Amino acid sequence: MPTGVAIRDVREQLFDAADRILLRDGPSGLTSRAVTTEAGVAKGVLHKHFADFDAFLADFVLDRVHRMAPQALALREAAGRGTVAGNVTEALVGVFGSVAVAIVALITFRDELRARLRETWPAGVPVLTEAASMLGDYLARERDLGRVGAAAEPQFLAAMLIGSAHLLFADRTGPPPTRADVERMVTNVLP
């Protein structure tokens, strides 16, 4: 890109490039040069908008976590409709069918990124803890409606579902699990 040309939504352009690289090449392929090349911008553009590459990555991860808000709202509004297993399955496929699994690997891969995220996200892995919170809230609503057992503990169920789904989706070398695979896991976890 020529110098002096205004770039619209540069952060989003860089974040979208990071998504594509993570999905294609994994965390080891995610470098500042790879991001700027993929985004079609000069390398200096990234450093103009972020203090360093780990600051970029921290903002990228948090942006992707905040993108889960519409999915959380949709799941919350699904309480009482459809089946609980079907709603949970759709939520898990939505979370893990996105860049979430690659973000978990990225956070695990980069010590400095984990340290930066701890400044604003004190516990857990941001994408997974947000997904667990989303599922826990939904399951609590379903329990209140009598569609999940009264003795169920939604936050524990949510953690089991997130952990189990992560194990299903974590293998980047084979085909992703089918919706039926995810639903079978969900029906085995839910009481």
Rank of each mutant, 00 (worst) to 15 (best):
G80A: 02
E183K: 08
S32R: 11
F109P: 00
P191M: 11
G82Q: 11
T37H: 11
M160T: 09
R110Q: 07
G80N: 05
W121V: 01
T36D: 04
E183S: 04
M1E: 14
R114M: 08
G124H: 01
Q71M: 15
R24I: 00
L168P: 06
E12N: 08
A159Q: 09
V99E: 03
R11Q: 10
A152Q: 03
A78I: 04
I21P: 03
G94F: 10
L128V: 04
F60L: 11
V35Y: 02
V84I: 05
F60I: 03
A42D: 14
L135I: 01
A51L: 10
E119Y: 00
F50Y: 15
G146I: 01
D181G: 09
V65D: 09
D59S: 12
V101K: 07
L22N: 01
V65K: 09
R147L: 10
N188S: 15
D137S: 13
L167W: 08
P27R: 07
Q155I: 07
A115N: 09
G97C: 02
E112K: 06
H49G: 04
V10C: 07
I7S: 03
D9Y: 11
V189H: 05
A150D: 13
Q155W: 06
H66Q: 14
T31F: 02
L113K: 06
G86S: 10
P126V: 01
M68D: 11
A158R: 02
V186P: 06
A159E: 07
